[in-house]
Design a protein around this nucleic acid. Structure first.
Length: 718
DNA sequence: ACGGCTGATACT
DNA sequence: TAGTATCAG
């Protein structure tokens, strides 16, 4: 909750829109299956129990009294004609990817018009202040020869003095010239939103509703007032009358316990009721932040900014196991964790490919009860650890996290029963999630670029003003190979030729620190890619087994490499991009075998494409060399990577990669690093590199290591 | 011990 | 920070 409110009047009025898709899941299904249009429809989560649980209800069905959180059977009873569509199922669980992707479609349209915040899978905030100002300056409504039909259908709160709000009234309101400037801005905003909503409809076939107001809170309130497919405007003058009788539970954030205690403590059940309490009083009751926040929202004040964020901050995959489905063996837990991790990892790869983002933290949540314990109210603890890319690693780590949690869960409270049999616990819910997702800086979008960029290794590259990093490229999606990629128009963002620009959005830290962050992110990016390929390589042996997921994964990763390489200009020149993927599977790459014949890798048929890429890109003589050094020509001596490997002439990037491929037990010692090169690095980088060389704790011990090295920790405990 | 699944945020 | 709790839809 945004606890700091900005004075509304101090800096000119903002124009904020909240766009809310109408019964979104239903619309998505209706688009997929147009015969459903016009019929009472609901989306149910696959669940043979009682016909499944409704998670979205179309407006035709609502007329019959069908409600969310009814079971499918009840819905049928109330509305026998209802069409129940099932949510897609993958890996034994509901998969919401199609809806997520559909949401991305909408967001990419909205984002063209102003700062855009994806508030949920089907809700978006838009800051239209600039656009409205521009319109007011250049072509104000009163100078328009006509107001669009859609805009004329707007609802203007407070306009209708009880009863009739005709189109004429609305038209008059739009054209009113003797009104406060802030209302004219709202009118402009409403015209824009009407336009946007038509765009959305044309391009996606989805209808939405919208609220237009001076802040997020009011916009959100308004968007729900006239649904579906309508928009509602909240003029400043209508705020008091709107809020005064409004049940407190209708306000966002007050629908839960806080709202309840407001009634219990203060006897207040409408927003207007709050007005009688001083800010101090509210602070006494609910703390300084919440108190002030309450005081403000009662007056329609909400300074919360629209964040520029089109992508989610975390990904998660979870499932519940209610009743007797509860999991009672570690085995079954592991089985389900593996499924959940598969989905999560698929989405992570999507995010990496489409948005160039890397997640850094893996978290496991579980819910459980104890069988013998009378008080089974104990919570199963959440656990997290550094996230290592690679499906097997995520699966292993999540299981370790679970076991760590389970030990706490079982030990702390019920040490009483010593002969601990299997069934003292049961798991009713599992979820894995990935967070701390960071965008790789522009210019790092291919490994080639990294290596070609050497002279100026760590120049921070910023986006053009007004476009935040994570809005770059395309919108995330996930799941099932249907990675929708929607590119935003606008300024070129992804060129490494862009030099450092000043970023106005950021308070700009020490530029030097900034530089280091960019460096770290680049390391992360490259290493993650290498490791993904290592994993794909391992998986090759499974392709014969026709495991659909594994082979899909391999394809996925092939595509990723190809894209990355094609996107690199020099890769394209050499024709490497396409050659590489072709050669991925064939068997000409015994380059590594000289050293470690026993290693698993040597039994594989191919050389991982990334590695091969390194090889072929470089000296032509590479394959013959026994212990090769590469990239000598390309790299300036300031390369941080070289420093990790040692001196430029001795052991370089390629051999670092090789070593990683050769050895499951990755353990560089400090003495393998040329101290001269290490000392050339900026002090912070030196520190970081040295830190990498320390032994790292991992999931078992549940401690977060430094940003990069944990990717390299061996997979197995052995 | 059934509304399931997914996300954000604030507190500590 | 990691872990918990609350909220929303």
């Amino acid at each position: 909750m945004p606890r700091v409110a900005r004075a509304e009047s101090s800096s000119g009025s903002r124009v904020i829109a909240h766009i809310d898709m109408d019964c979104f899941y239903v619309q998505v299904e209706q688009r997929k299956q147009p015969t459903l249009r016009g019929h009472p429809t609901a989306v149910v989560q696959y669940n043979s129990w009682k016909g499944g649980g409704l998670i979205a209800v179309g407006y035709e069905a609502r007329k019959y009294g069908v409600k969310r959180s009814m079971r499918g059977d009840e819905a049928k009873k109330v509305c026998p004609d209802i069409q129940l569509v099932q949510v897609p199922v993958a890996r034994g669980k509901a998969d919401l990817s199609v809806y997520r992707n559909a949401g991305s479609e909408v967001v990419s349209i909205l984002a063209r018009r102003g700062r855009c915040e994806r508030a949920s899978i089907d809700e978006v905030y838009l800051d239209l202040s600039e656009a409205a100002e521009t319109m007011l300056a250049e072509s104000p409504p009163e100078r328009l020869e006509s107001i669009s039909e859609e805009a004329l259908k707007s609802h203007v709160l407070g306009l209708h003095m009880d009863g009739v709000s005709t189109k004429d009234c609305v038209k008059e309101w739009f054209l009113m010239s003797n009104v406060h400037r802030r209302d004219k801005l709202l009118a402009c905003g409403a015209l824009i939103v009407a336009e946007i909503r038509l765009e959305v409809l044309n391009e996606t076939e989805f209808t939405c509703s919208a609220g237009i107001a001076h802040n997020k809170m009011l916009a959100k309130l308004a968007s729900g007032m006239n649904k579906p497919a309508q928009q509602t405007i909240v003029p400043f003058s209508s705020v008091e009358k709107l809020l005064e009788p409004l049940p407190i539970k209708k306000m966002k954030q007050l629908g839960g316990k806080l709202g309840t205690s407001l009634l219990a403590d203060l006897g207040v059940d409408t927003v207007g009721g709050l007005l009688q309490f001083s800010e101090e009083k509210l602070q006494e009751c609910y703390g300084i932040n919440t108190g002030t926040w309450l005081w403000n929202i009662a007056r329609g004040i909400c300074g919360e900014e629209v964040e520029s964020r089109l992508l989610p901050k975390s990904h998660g995959s979870g499932k519940t196991f209610p009743g007797r489905q509860a999991l009672k063996t570690v085995y079954s837990v592991q089985k389900w964790l593996n499924e959940l991790c598969e989905e999560l990892y698929e989405r992570l790869l999507c995010d990496l490919e489409q948005n160039k983002r890397i997640a850094h933290t893996l978290t496991l949540h579980a819910s459980a009860y104890k069988l013998n314990d009378m008080e089974s109210l104990k919570k199963f603890p959440s656990k997290s650890c550094p996230l290592r890319y690679g499906i097997a690693k995520i699966q292993e780590d999540s299981l370790n996290l679970f076991n760590a949690g389970l030990r706490e869960f079982t030990s702390i409270c019920s040490a009483k029963i010593k002969g601990s049999k299997q069934h003292e616990w049961a798991i009713t819910g599992l979820s894995v999630s990935a967070s701390k997702i960071v965008v790789i800086p522009s210019g790092t979008h291919s490994i080639m670029k990294y290596f070609h960029n050497q002279g100026q290794t760590c120049i921070p590259i910023k986006e053009p003003d007004g476009i935040s990093t994570q809005n770059a490229a395309s919108l995330s999606s996930s799941g099932n190979g249907c990675c929708v990629s929607l590119h935003l128009p606008g300024p070129e963002i992804n060129t490494c030729e862009n030099e450092a620009k000043t970023n106005l959005d950021m308070p700009c830290l020490n530029p030097y620190e900034d530089e280091i962050e960019v460096c770290k992110a680049r390391f992360d990016f490259m290493f993650v890619n290498v490791l993904i390929y290592k994993d794909a390589f391992h998986m090759e042996k499974f392709t014969d087994n026709q495991d659909p997921f594994l082979s899909r994964m391999i394809q996925e990763e092939d595509r990723l490499t190809e894209k990355l390489l094609l996107s690199s200009s020099s890769g394209a020149e050499n024709g490497l991009g396409s050659k590489l993927t072709q050669s991925h599977m064939d068997s000409h790459g015994p380059v590594l075998k000289s050293e470690n014949q026993k290693r698993k890798f040597d039994k594989q048929k191919g050389t991982p494409s990334i590695l091969r890429f390194f090889q072929s890109h470089n000296s032509s003589s590479f394959p013959e060399q026994d212990h090769v050094s590469t990239f000598q020509e390309n790299e300036a001596s300031s390369s941080g990577l070289q420093a990790i490997n040692g001196s430029p002439g001795r052991k370089s990037t390629c051999s670092l990669v090789e070593d990683e491929f050769r050895s499951n037990a990755w353990n560089y010692k400090s003495d393998e690093i040329d101290p001269v090169v290490l000392n050339e690095l900026p002090p912070e980088i030196q520190a970081e590199v040295r830190a990498w060389l320390q032994p790292q704790k991992r999931a078992n011990t549940v401690k977060k290591g430094s940003s990069i090295i944990h990717y390299f920790s061996p997979t197995a405990n052995s």
